[in-house]
Amino acid sequence: MKQTVSEKLFNVFNCTFFVLLGLTTLLPFINLIAKSFSSESAVISGKVNLLPIGFQTGTYLYVLQNDMFLNALKTSVILAIVGTAVGLFVTTLTAYPLSRIQLRGRKWILLLFIFTMLFSGGLIPTYLLMQALGLINELPVLFLPAAINVFNMLIIKNYFEELPDGLEESAKLDGASNVRILFSIVLPLSLPVLATIALFFAVAFWNDYFTAMIYITDQELKPLQLFLKELLVASSGEFLKDNVDAALNTTPQSIQAASILLATLPILFVYPFLQKYFVKGVLVGSVKG
């Protein structure tokens, strides 16, 4: 198809515009990297833009030797792995029966799930529940309540529904049980959606600070994002106002930058490996043939 001049112009403009837009999302990262490698004086006086000034790596050494950071990193890694495994497991087990027409009353059960997606008990009743269950200040509180994510469950359910009925019927004829069908036939065919949901879970657990802020006061159990949040808040004027002793011990900005970067990198590295499933997985489940 031949393009007119105006169409070409539009395309050129469009591409440039979106490339620039894309770059703007990259700029904060570059700025952060530059800050983390710069001397504190240069950072304080606001001279660091895209390139480090007064290059140093001491900030990284400091952060990587900081027990609190390492502890938080450990918690976050455990949380992301265990949380994703548990989440994926129970979400799949919920999605599968709900995707089968044989299940009687599934419309109503589904409605109940969707109801919880829109309404929740509220913060304080939920806190009371967690306390009654003995989960306050325990690691499981960070992933158990979020183990079944209705949105993720619906995506998996839709994907399961797309699979040809014939597969299941033939397995049944061969004498496979329901569990066998799920694990030997349905799940291997659903890897794209499982990878996507796994990434959803992992990113959500990795980025979540709110749950920990509410339920965790034990320093040893605080995940990385909460540590980061507190690092930044504890260096802000609001917190230091009227608190001279805290003001004397603020964290230098270059160290803050290094901490943010080190906390973001691990989850970034997961993306490239799951990317190919990522877009495909969500779409396949949603588009009805």
């Binding site: 027990d67 609190m68 502890n71 320093q219 040893e220 507190e230 690092l231 504890a234 917190f239 805290a246 011990n249 964290t251």
Partner: peptide, 8 residues
Amino acid sequence: YGLFDPNA
């Protein structure tokens, strides 16, 4: 709040 582990 303080930026350290109070038990360690």
